[in-house]
Amino acid sequence: MRVLIPSALHSYTGQPWVDAAGATVGAVLADLNRQFPGIRFRIVDEQGRLRRHIRLFHRGEAIVNLAAPLPADGELMIVQALSGG
C-alpha cells in the first residue's frame, strides 16, 4: 500500500510517498516503523492513541480505529492538522 507521509515526517522517510504492508492501519504503522525507526511514536502515543494533530484517511474516510481492517488497495494518507503558530 502506498502511504502519504506529511512533510513533518520526511526526516524519517526522505520522500512523501512510501510503501508499507499490513491488514490494519496499526499493522501498516508498525511496518512503517520497521522501515523508518521512530516514526510511529511521532504519530501514535504509547497508549496506542493517534496524536492530537494527526489524521489518517483511506478512500476519503477518516480512520480513528487503528485496529480496523484496511483493504490492501488504495492509499493511506497521514495528514498533519497544523494549528497555532
Binding site: 511514536f41 501514535v44 494527526i54 498533519q80 492538522a81
Partner: peptide, 26 residues
Amino acid sequence: GHLGPTVFRSSDLGRSWREARRPPAF
C-alpha cells in the same frame, strides 16, 4: 506542534544528530 515527543542526541556538539531509539514513554 503536531508530532509526538522525542529526544535527539549529538556527540559532536550539534554537527550531527541521532534520534533516541526509545524516547521517554509511560
